[in-house]
């Protein structure tokens, strides 16, 4: 399933004193199997953009095409579509409402109209995906859990619909490093098992570790779109967009400035490590 944005523009509160252009003429395509990282400074329109991808917001002008068909066309069942394109909001733990964790996760599958047995099965699978023990947590109230656990329940609630494409809006915001790694691990597993992933993130290191593609927004416009390697070598552009580059890239720049023979497009720690090891071996042939 491909999602294509065509000249997407979104204006909030058009025609009033509060009018603000949140997105301006954005075009790009999300292809099957992508792990697309959406990055940009605070308020650049990332959350606005992801809400267009499953039809929760209507573009002021421009189109969102899903498999070539206009998402906001007349005969499109957007409710059905939303279940194929799962969206996890920023701070999704605030959407929990049921008495028990299992019931809350079952909300999506129930809306799909599945049978009780199937729903049960999906809840179990989704809880396993987010590493929550079914026997321990299924009967607990979601309001008694810790913030990180609530976040995982909320993500499971979207995964239980088994979407082909998963969109996550800053899934790690406000979590401790341990909770963050946990969520990112879950997202990585999902991508490896074939889900197309779109993730909004403020951490360039996370993007460097996970993404296969990076889209950079600045002030509501598309600034750059490419592989992490292409994006992170443009250090000045990334600084100007208020983002910076991964730690490894920064280190590479500093080392190159001191005359070390390193390629300028390294961006992961592993790569840098390999190159440094090579240099060290060349310098100390034993």
């Amino acid at each position: 399933m491909s999602i294509q944005l065509k000249n997407l523009t979104h204006v909030y509160s058009g025609g009033t004193a509060f009018e603000s252009v949140a997105l301006h003429d954005i075009s790009f395509e999300i292809r099957d199997g992508d792990f697309l990282a959406l990055v940009g400074h605070t308020g650049c329109g990332k959350s606005t953009l992801v809400q267009h991808l499953n039809g929760l917001l209507k573009p002021t002008s421009g189109q969102v095409l899903v498999d070539g068909e206009d998402l906001n066309g007349e005969h499109v069942d957007r409710r059905k579509l939303r279940m194929r394109i799962g969206l996890v909001f920023q701070y999704p733990e605030y959407q929990l409402f049921e008495e028990t964790v299992a019931k809350d996760i079952a909300f999506g599958p129930k809306n799909l109209g599945l049978s009780a047995a199937e729903i049960e099965e999906r809840v179990r699978t989704a809880m396993a995906q987010v590493h929550l023990n079914y026997d321990k947590y299924a009967r607990r109230s979601p309001f008694e859990l810790s913030g990180g656990q609530m976040r995982r329940v909320a993500i499971a609630g979207v995964l239980a619909m088994q979407p082909k494409t998963l969109i996550l809006d800053e899934p790690t915001a406000g979590l401790d490093p341990h909770g963050r790694d946990r969520i990112l691990g879950i997202v990585r597993e999902l991508h490896q098992s074939g889900t197309t992933v779109v993730m909004v993130s403020h951490s360039m290191d996370d993007v460097a570790r996970l993404a296969t593609r990076v889209v950079v927004l600045a002030h509501g416009s598309l600034l750059a779109d490419g592989t992490p390697r292409e994006i992170f070598r443009q250090r000045e552009m990334m600084e100007e967009a208020g983002l910076g580059v991964p730690e490894a890239s920064r280190l590479v720049q500093a080392l190159r400035a001191r005359g070390l023979d390193l390629p300028d497009d390294l961006y992961t720690q592993d790569e840098l490590y390999d190159h440094l090891l090579r240099l060290w071996k060349e310098a100390n042939p034993c």
Binding site: Q51, N54, L56, R79, R82, M83, G86, L87, V88, F89, P92, Y94, Q95, F97, F107, G108, N111, L112, G157, V158, M161
Partner: peptide, 26 residues
């Protein structure tokens, strides 16, 4: 919250009065 529940397939617009009232719970 409405959007988040709609992303999980909630339907706030159709159905009779009782169904709609129930849909408000989430």
């Amino acid at each position: 919250i409405m959007k988040a529940q709609m992303a999980r397939g909630a339907d706030f617009e159709s159905g009779n009065l009782i169904k709609r009232a129930k849909a408000m719970v989430p």
